[in-house]
Structures are given as structure tokens and as C-alpha cells.
Amino acid sequence: MHIVVCIKQVPDSAQIRVHPVTNTIMRQGVPTIINPYDLFALEEALRVRDRFGGKVTVLTMGPPMAEDSLRKALGYGVDAAVLLTDRAFAGSDTLATSFALATAIEKLHQEDPVHIVFTGKQTIDGDTAQVGPGIAQRLKLQQLTYVSAIRDVDSAGKSITVERRAEGGTQVLKTTLPCLITMLEGTNTLRRGSMDDVFRAVRSEVRTWSARDAGVEDITKCGLRGSPTVVKKVFAPQPRMEKAQQIDALGKSPAEIADETINMLFTASNQLGDDILKLTEAI
């Protein structure tokens, strides 16, 4: 069985700062990481391989430095890595991104038939959750989003049964391969790479594909030109007109501060006390 995992190298958003004066993003020195949601996809792909056999190829689209993330993935025991990098991809929105990734997966499929494509449920920088479904539709793969568990893959590699997080419950779905799975977070714990894998990750070849290498024929479907959405404005939100009314805490004990706070809240809303009494009645 051939499993492809799509990952994205993203800035560690916990460490992004906005310049207080110019309101611009301070990118310098922000470390990059594998999108945390993708790690659940990566681990699940490795588990499927370990249970049912086959190989895992990790794929990313990004600048040349995205190779770092592929090497990290190799360190967890992934078998092969492909970096899709080309200036033609710059400025891609989700539709153009799914086009590029789908084209590359098609090429991988020609080399060695692909049975399952894994992605994270979304990225932490874009947060759209659109690229996974985009790839599925372009390649006519069965689309299984927000998967929380893989129950079974039949030995002939023909079908798969999964649990999917739906509104208000869990769907148990059975479908035929090939399929695309977006993995829900918190569903597994990423393994530690073995020493062998960690050493291998340094030496392993990372295949680097340009748009042409990946088999892109129509370059206008890539990057800015292939993106139907247009970002017209990026801005910091306006602060509220009046700042928070501060409770004077200077030299006061927590108990005094608490009393003063409650007085203020109850003055601001004469309903609040009754609301709380109602809410606590049932308990």
C-alpha cells in the first residue's frame, strides 16, 4: 500500500508578534515548525503502514527551506520525501494549492499507485481546512474529513472503515480506496523516531520537484494566477474606543479586589445575580 502524507511548514504562530507601532508582522526570527495538525496525519499514516504494510511518502509545497520539515518527517520513519518548490506557486490560495499538490500526487501515483492521502484537518497559519477536500475532489478520491479513528483497511487494499467526527456524533463510514483522510487532532500521539530513522533522515534523498517536474502543464492554474481569491487588505483590528475600566488593585488583597469586582459587575448588570441563581439552580 502506498500512503501519501501532505504536510506544511508554518511559522510557529505562538511566536509571531505584531510590531506595536507599525502594525506589521515581525517575521524575523520566527521559527518554523511542521503544522501541528499534520503530525496526527503523519502518525496515523505510519500506523496504517505498520499494520497493513506498504510505504509512506511525505509531500510538501513551499520554499526550499521547507526541506527541513521533510527531514523531520523522515526522522519519524517516513520512507520517502518530495518537496514541491517553484516560484510559480507563490501566492497560491487554497484552490491553486490543491491543484499543485493534486498534480504531484498524480505523478507519485503513476510511479507507485497511491491508496490513501492523509492531511491534517487544517493549518495553523491559514486555518481554512480547504486544501484536503480540494485534493480529494481534483483526484476524485473519496473524501473523509475529521477522521478520529481508522477501524480497518481490508487486506487487499480495496476498502477502508473509519470513524468520522460529525455534528452531534460519530459517523462510521466505509468506502473504497483510494481515499483522502483529514485527521482530527488529539487522535494519536506521535512516535519518537528510532535512532536508525533519525540518522537516515540526514542522509536520505529529498526529491525536489519544480512545477514542470511534478507534471504541471498549465502554469496559469498555479500561484496568484490560479487563485480566484484576492486579498485586498491586511490590517490590525481597531481597539475599542474606551479601554477596559480597571479595578484598582494597588495595595489591596485578592479578597478586596474580588468584592470590588463583583460590586462593579452587579452594578453594570442588575440581571446578573438572577441569571447566576437560575444557572446554578439545576445543579
Partner: peptide
């Protein structure tokens, strides 16, 4: 504090238990 209506500058781990106690008494 730019979008909150009321603010307390202080250690949440001390203020929260105090609030819990004060609310309990009041209620």
C-alpha cells in the same frame, strides 16, 4: 484590556479563588 469592559491587573491564580469565594458568599 483593549477589548475587555473590565480589567484587573493581577495574578489570576490569586484573583480567581478570591472571586470564587466572594461569589459564593454573595450568592
Amino acid at each position: 484590556f483593549e477589548f475587555a469592559h473590565y480589567g484587573i491587573v493581577g495574578d489570576a491564580t490569586q484573583i480567581l479563588p478570591a472571586l470564587t469565594k466572594a461569589f459564593e458568599q454573595r450568592l
